[in-house]
Simulated assay, not measured.
Amino acid sequence: MSKTIQFDDFTKVDIRVGTITEVNDFPEARTPAYQLTIDFGDLGVKKTSAQITTRYKKEDLLNKQILAIVNFPKKQIGKFMSECLVLGAADGGDVTLLNPEIPVKNGSTVS
Score class of each variant (00 low, 15 high):
58 K>D: 00
95 V>T: 15
76 Q>C: 12
102 I>F: 07
69 I>A: 05
19 T>W: 03
74 K>F: 11
51 Q>V: 04
30 R>V: 04
74 K>S: 15
78 G>S: 13
43 L>W: 03
41 G>V: 13
96 T>W: 06
41 G>L: 07
62 L>T: 00
25 D>T: 11
21 T>M: 04
44 G>I: 10
52 I>T: 03
92 G>L: 15
100 P>K: 06
83 E>W: 09
38 I>N: 13
20 I>M: 04
56 Y>T: 01
50 A>N: 06
21 T>K: 09
80 F>A: 03
10 F>K: 14
72 F>C: 14
46 K>P: 01
99 N>T: 10
59 E>L: 03
72 F>V: 11
73 P>M: 08
34 Y>I: 01
101 E>M: 11
55 R>H: 05
90 A>E: 14
2 S>E: 12
14 D>W: 10
109 T>S: 11
20 I>S: 02
54 T>R: 14
46 K>Y: 02
42 D>W: 01
57 K>G: 01
82 S>I: 13
49 S>V: 02
10 F>Y: 15
3 K>S: 06
77 I>N: 08
78 G>D: 11
68 A>Q: 08
53 T>A: 06
51 Q>Y: 05
42 D>V: 04
67 L>C: 11
52 I>C: 01
32 P>C: 01
97 L>Y: 05
94 D>L: 11
2 S>N: 13
40 F>I: 07
63 N>I: 01
5 I>V: 15
43 L>N: 02
17 V>P: 06
72 F>M: 15
85 L>R: 14
68 A>C: 06
96 T>D: 05
58 K>H: 03
108 S>Y: 07
17 V>Q: 08
3 K>Q: 09
106 N>P: 10
36 L>R: 12
92 G>R: 14
63 N>Q: 11
23 V>S: 02
58 K>C: 00
32 P>R: 01
16 R>Q: 15
105 K>I: 04
12 K>N: 14
9 D>L: 12
85 L>D: 11
97 L>A: 03
34 Y>R: 00
82 S>V: 12
